[in-house]
Design a protein around this nucleic acid. Structure first.
Lengths: 201, 201
DNA sequence: AACTCCATGTAAATCGTTACATGATTAA
DNA sequence: TTAATCATGTAACGATTTACATGGAGTT
């Protein structure tokens, strides 16, 4: 005698080709909640702070996506607070879905960076205008560099948030290089030397 | 006796708030045609080659946008070739519109970079899986670096395309830095030293 | 004759931004 | 009590991707 057991488990299937592209926001959200639970509002802010060099999303995109992730069983409400706020966290299924996305799917390498596009197109400008455009960029990069350095010092004081460290580190390494390139371009437009920036490493 | 002359010149107005955001594709296209005229098909390829670190667009986005730019008087058909192809170029009005966009509008600094997002989220993986993910990234960056170096040598032979030089230069400076960071991360996962890459500067 | 690349287009679905809306809580 | 910040949502529009669709020209 024997028995046949068929387990049909139908839910939000994240491996079908129906969800082949544009899932980055979903996993950005999931990842942020794995790193640390938070409200939709807090997640919105983290996109502008921690994640600003990689991705961005407004609250009008985040709240509906949190609902979809909840329907899929990937996130759950951990607690409810004042002002109708809900603190979300990733479920074990959510952690597993994130892990599989990171390890088993090919990254989409297409980058969208308007500032870099402008840098490229600045080649069409005459030297004086090009210099003005590059100086605006340089000012922004320098400001960002100081923000990152300040953030890094804060993190050194509070070692609990070590998972932000790799991004801060990456930001510090990449942005000064762009800054240095800008300085070089501006320098050659001026036809004179500008002082070298202080080393970051 | 006097006369009142009212000049009403209504056309595609690129300074109104109706076109405040998402104009980057329009100017990317315009800029590519200012740098060098080409067919829609050629422009599609340039997005994947020259401009891949800054912006991307498929042909289904490019052909309609070229039509809109033509309606606005910013691009024109320079010549028609085999296979119903048309070579487009920027008009004087197109050059001026590009110049004004570059110098008079604020850049949108929001970056969309899935590979960087994955790098950030890799913090949630265990060391073995994280290392595998980082090594995949490293392989890609190394391959890209060799492509850029090869392209640079080609450009040295043909000095007519000097406007590509800044991007190649930027790519060469930024990507090896990310490569170096990846090497460092992989190295500390392995707990042993990896050989330093050859210097690019 | 089959295959590849060149060359152009449209349609449907999804993703993302901006604007519209509301209300609670805290600090000045 | 006024303003700022916290907190959540929806609707409309625009941007982007994917799939569908067609045909010319050159190479094997």
């Amino acid at each position: 005698m024997g028995s046949i057991c068929i387990n049909v488990h139908v839910e939000f299937d994240m491996s079908t080709e129906a969800y082949a592209a544009g899932m980055a926001l979903r996993y950005a959200l999931l990842g942020l909640l794995v790193l640390e639970p938070g409200t939709g509002y807090e997640i919105t802010q983290r996109f502008d702070r921690s994640l600003s060099i990689a991705w961005h999303a407004g609250h009008s995109q985040i709240y509906p996506e949190l609902s979809r992730l909840q329907d899929a069983g990937l996130v759950e409400v951990l607690s409810e607070g004042p002002r109708n706020s809900r603190t979300w966290g990733a479920t074990p299924a959510g952690r597993e879905a994130l892990r599989r996305w990171l390890t088993e799917t090919e990254p989409n390498r297409k980058v969208r960076d308007e500032a870099a596009l402008r840098l490229f197109l600045a080649a069409v400008l005459d030297p004086a205008e090009r210099r003005a455009v590059l100086e605006r960029d340089l000012a922004y990069v320098e400001a960002q560099r100081h923000e990152l350095l300040a953030l890094m010092e804060q993190l050194d004081d509070q070692p609990g948030h070590s998972h932000f460290r790799p991004l801060v580190d990456l930001g510090l390494r990449v942005n000064p290089v762009i800054g240095e390139w800008l300085r070089h371009e501006i320098g050659s437009t001026r036809r004179r030397q500008v002082p070298r920036p202080p080393s970051v490493s």
